[in-house]
Simulated assay, not measured.
Amino acid sequence: MNLIQIKYFLAVAECLNFTAAAARLFVSQQCVSKQVAKLEREIGVRLFERSTAKVALTDAGKLLQGEWSAMLERCDQAVVRARAVQDAGRPSIRIGLLELCGVVDFVLPRLSAYNEAHPGGELEYEIGGFLQVQEWLFMGQVDAIVTFNYEVARLPDRYQFRNLRDMDVFIILSRRHPLARREQVTLSDLKGQVIYAFAPNYSTYASDTVLTHCRKLGFEPEFKYFNSINAMELALQAGKGVSVAFREFYRNQGGELLFYPTPVLEGWQQPSISVCWSQENTPRLEEFIQCLEA
């Protein structure tokens, strides 16, 4: 049992609809269903009565909804108090950075600039995956995270985010791939191709938009999922699959990969590198966030 599972359960308990809860959380419905089912198995309690017509809380689910909602509220309050105690002794800011090279390369010079301007403070950072940095933020282990806007846009209202830099979308493939002989490659050209994407347990959003738009174009895409950006880049370089993603994902040492620009897909907000933080930290983080925007 973990905090992500509890948050997913509480979203479904409030919406009484897995699809609506997934939309609120900005994740796929399959991801929510999987995590709630896993939670039920781990604690040995049936939380929902499910039917084709509706979803309803069991009596046990109602009890845990109340208890866990109160628990999360107490956790948030405890984190605020703990930070106040620590910050009274030494000013510090803790940041979680998405482990993709484009994010790290964008942020590190700004962290150095902030350190130079504030020699008396302490700035710490950790690097992790999409869901990992979010959990750090939820648990109060970091003050802010730098990730992608579509990963945080539908977090609860107590979390704020600000876009730092827009990103362009590309179809990415190896020079060895058969499509590399073309001057242009579009989404329609991906019919029959294997599309590489992050696994749902690494990024809950990675393949959803591509899947939707391929279906609009009349074909069902075949995905191969990865839990590591390095493994995905290595597979791309082998020339057997394609990716619909951002330059910021890949180092592309040696120039093996080709990048074909594609418009931001309809219904997909402009992707951006973004900073996200808890609302109660706004006063102490404002100057730091302005440094990231510079």
Rank of each mutant, 00 (worst) to 15 (best):
V27C: 10
K224S: 08
P178N: 03
S92P: 02
L100V: 08
W68L: 13
L190F: 09
Y260L: 10
S188M: 07
S274H: 08
D208K: 05
A144D: 10
R83K: 11
V79N: 08
E280M: 07
Y260C: 12
D189W: 02
M232R: 02
E222W: 02
K62W: 04
C31N: 10
V244C: 02
F246W: 01
T52K: 13
V103Q: 03
Y114T: 06
L111P: 00
C15N: 12
A180G: 06
Q193I: 01
L236V: 05
V107L: 00
V80Q: 13
A199I: 04
Q270Y: 02
A153R: 15
E280G: 05
Y8L: 15
A180T: 05
L190C: 04
E151A: 15
D166L: 13
A294M: 11
L179T: 07
E151K: 11
L111W: 01
P178S: 05
Y150W: 12
E248V: 00
P261C: 09
V169E: 14
N163K: 14
R181Q: 14
W268R: 13
D189P: 03
K191L: 06
E286N: 08
V103N: 02
P91C: 01
R158K: 15
Q290E: 14
A199R: 01
R90M: 09
D105P: 00
Y205I: 08
P156H: 14
D168V: 09
E183D: 14
N17L: 11
A88P: 03
Q290C: 11
F18E: 12
R176G: 10
S228N: 05
I273W: 03
A11W: 14
E293P: 00
Q237N: 02
K216Q: 14
S28N: 04
A197D: 04
S33G: 11
Q141L: 11
S92M: 01
I229V: 11
I145V: 14
D208Q: 10
G128V: 07
L164R: 13
H177F: 11
V103I: 00
Y114M: 01
L64Y: 15
G66K: 07
A78L: 14
V36E: 04
R247M: 03
Y260P: 13
L63N: 01
V142M: 09
I95G: 02
S92D: 01
E233H: 00
C276I: 00
A70Q: 12
E122R: 12
F223Y: 03
C276L: 02
V169C: 13
V32D: 08
C75V: 10
R74N: 07
D208Y: 08
V79Y: 10
L100K: 04
A153G: 03
A13R: 12
V55R: 03
S188Q: 12
E248Q: 01
A23F: 04
E116V: 00
G96W: 03
F288C: 09
T262E: 15
V152S: 09
I171G: 03
V80S: 08
G140T: 09
E280K: 08
D143C: 05
A78M: 15
F48R: 02
E220G: 00
E233Q: 04
F259K: 08
E266S: 11
Q290T: 11
T58V: 04
Y114I: 03
T212H: 12
G218Y: 04
G140C: 06
Q184L: 09
Q35S: 10
E116C: 01
T262W: 03
R251D: 10
L292K: 00
D208A: 12
A117D: 09
S33T: 06
G96N: 01
I289F: 07
Q279S: 12
K191A: 15
F148T: 11
